[in-house]
Design a protein around this nucleic acid. Structure first.
Lengths: 131, 131
DNA sequence: CAGTATCCGGCCGGATACTG
DNA sequence: CAGTATCCGGCCGGATACTG
């Protein structure tokens, strides 16, 4: 507990020795597919493998399984396996996963407000005379 | 403008047709190195290539250059080239880049509060009897 | 100083086919 | 239904060496 408090404080205040406290969070939640998965679980609630598969469009079952396993191991989602025939498996956010909600809202908000500016910057950059 | 308002609104409210409004932001800012770069620029202010290189520890000049160019194109940082001998180049956050500050604070905060729980979850998961 | 040029390995994700 | 098994290509990042 004490140890944890120390390192989290160091991370939050910006450790002099390198260390970007945002990186670990990025590594944890922000890969190609984890964000869409968490978002779908967040907005549509508890659901089965096939439902997730359909909602996340083009993802393949292999990759979906891999990401779900990772998120489960990280404690962000909960997997419940009902031994029926045919099998039924349901996924839902854990309390820890749900704690990300304000963060996701904040991210979506920033995107809504600023992604247009990024587009504009790219356009201007590409249109500028090559030097 | 009107068009932009519409799509950003759609993204923010969670478009029924797939679409995770967080993904574009993730693609933009959260790669292996962009976060540490932005964090360094944010905490240490305007600085030269070598300073960045030293502060971000193990990154190679090639990769640092690549990420800096991308961030510049996206309008998040500003590169100023002084034609002196030896050459001097300085990087700093743009206004757009600075608008990410509250988000980064929020991310760091979540990490400080919850990364310990993630560690614990992983530990519990790996210690659990393999079934 | 502030990069560029080359080569190279690993990992992630996609395609396809198959199963308890 | 809820996955697993194989194969495979691309891209990102690292190592190393060189330059205006």
């Amino acid at each position: 507990m004490a140890d944890e408090t120390i390192w989290t404080a160091a991370a939050a205040t910006g450790d002099p020795e390198q260390a970007c406290p945002v990186s670990p969070v990025v590594d944890l939640v922000f890969s190609r597919w984890t964000t869409p998965i968490l978002w779908t679980l967040h907005t549509h609630g508890r659901q089965r493998f096939v439902e997730l598969h359909r909602r996340i469009a083009v993802i393949t079952p292999k990759v979906l399984t891999q990401r779900l396993r990772q998120l489960e191991r990280d404690g962000l989602i909960v997997r419940t396996h009902y031994r029926e025939v045919p099998p039924r498996v349901e996924y839902e956010m854990s309390d820890l996963g749900r704690s990300l909600a304000p963060l996701f809202a904040h991210l979506a908000e920033w995107g809504a407000a600023n992604l247009g500016r990024v587009e504009q910057a790219r356009h201007d950059h590409d249109a500028a005379p090559a030097r």
